[in-house]
């Protein structure tokens, strides 16, 4: 017997919006830094919408304010104007509903890999039993390929392994949105490729809404559903955006064989060069 899936919406025309529920709504976001020579406007009236379960990359030249944008979503940088809504609630301060993977792994070096992840898990699931919390932390560490390194001190791990822990720590919070701030920027290219695969694998299981800052064109195409291109500052806004219509699961080898991949690439590079 075949049980049909219930229809999400009975009203015609709303099906699409129902499927694409808004996760994050950035409205007229402005960031101004006071300097001795007057105000410096980093972002002005920037609008951005991110849908649930969407993976969005933000690409732009260094110093264009893309990291500032991400840190404002994280709540770590104050907002000068406009607002950010996460599932219809205004962002006022940082919180574990926005898991962050920082550019430098930012692990506590005096803790083991497990303890680093557990610190967050304990905060988010205070009512779970110790065994359950351990299970969550160990699960994600295993997913990023560190099942055998739970008890290694973070300071004894290589940069790549540290960033794996960083990814596990962010996913283990079960955040509403995952914020990745050039997560692979400090890694050599081989490790970077490896970690992109790891991230993609964990992400495709979790389908956490994700926003990634990067300046790597290939990385942005390979990982995202949509690439946002930011104009160079000051007063940066979103200059262009590109939907990446490559079906998932994606395999690097297959993606590289597509002609559309090179069209996307040309489009992005063209934007960045002008």
């Amino acid at each position: 017997m075949i049980i049909e899936k219930p229809i999400v919406s009975e009203i015609p025309g709303t099906a699409k919006t129902e499927q694409r529920a808004m996760a994050l709504d950035v409205r007229k976001l402005t960031k101004i830094y006071p300097t001795p020579n007057g105000e410096y406007v980093v972002l002005r009236d920037l609008d951005l919408q991110v849908w649930k379960e969407e993976f969005v990359s933000i690409i732009g030249h260094s110093g264009c304010g893309k990291s500032t944008l991400l840190m404002m979503i994280a709540g770590l940088t104050s907002i000068s104007g406009g607002e950010i809504l996460l599932e219809d609630r205004r962002i006022e301060e940082p919180g574990p509903d926005r898991g962050i993977v920082f550019q430098s792994p930012s692990l506590f070096p005096w803790m083991t890999a497990l303890e680093n992840v557990m610190l967050g898990v304990n905060q988010v699931f205070p009512h779970a039993t110790k065994a359950q919390r351990f299970e969550i932390a160990a699960y994600y560490l295993d997913k990023v390929g560190l099942g055998d390194a739970l008890d290694r001190k973070a300071s004894a791990l290589s940069q790549g392994m540290q960033q794996r822990v960083g990814i596990a720590r962010a996913f283990a919070l079960k955040p509403k949105v995952l914020l990745l701030d050039e997560p692979f920027g400090m890694l050599d290219s081989l490790t970077r490729t490896e970690l992109q695969d790891v991230l993609l694998e964990v992400w495709s299981k979790e389908k956490t809404t994700a926003i990634m800052i990067t300046h790597d064109v290939d990385e942005s195409i390979f990982l995202s559903d949509r690439v946002i291109m930011m104009t160079s500052g000051p007063a940066a806004i979103i200059g262009d955006e590109l939907d990446i219509r490559i079906e998932r699961p994606r395999l690097r080898k297959d993606v590289l064989e597509r002609s559309s991949y090179y069209e996307y690439r040309r489009h992005l590079i063209n934007f960045l060069e002008h």
């Binding site: 770590l76 301060e93 940082p94 574990p96 962050i100 920082f102 430098s104 930012s106 506590f108």
Partner: peptide
């Protein structure tokens, strides 16, 4: 390291936990 402080803020550690754990 300001990154450590940021992690503590994201995890919303209590002041006591922040002092002794971080």
């Amino acid at each position: 390291n300001p990154d450590y402080i940021n992690v503590a803020r994201v995890l919303q550690l209590s002041p006591l936990k922040k002092t002794f754990k971080v």
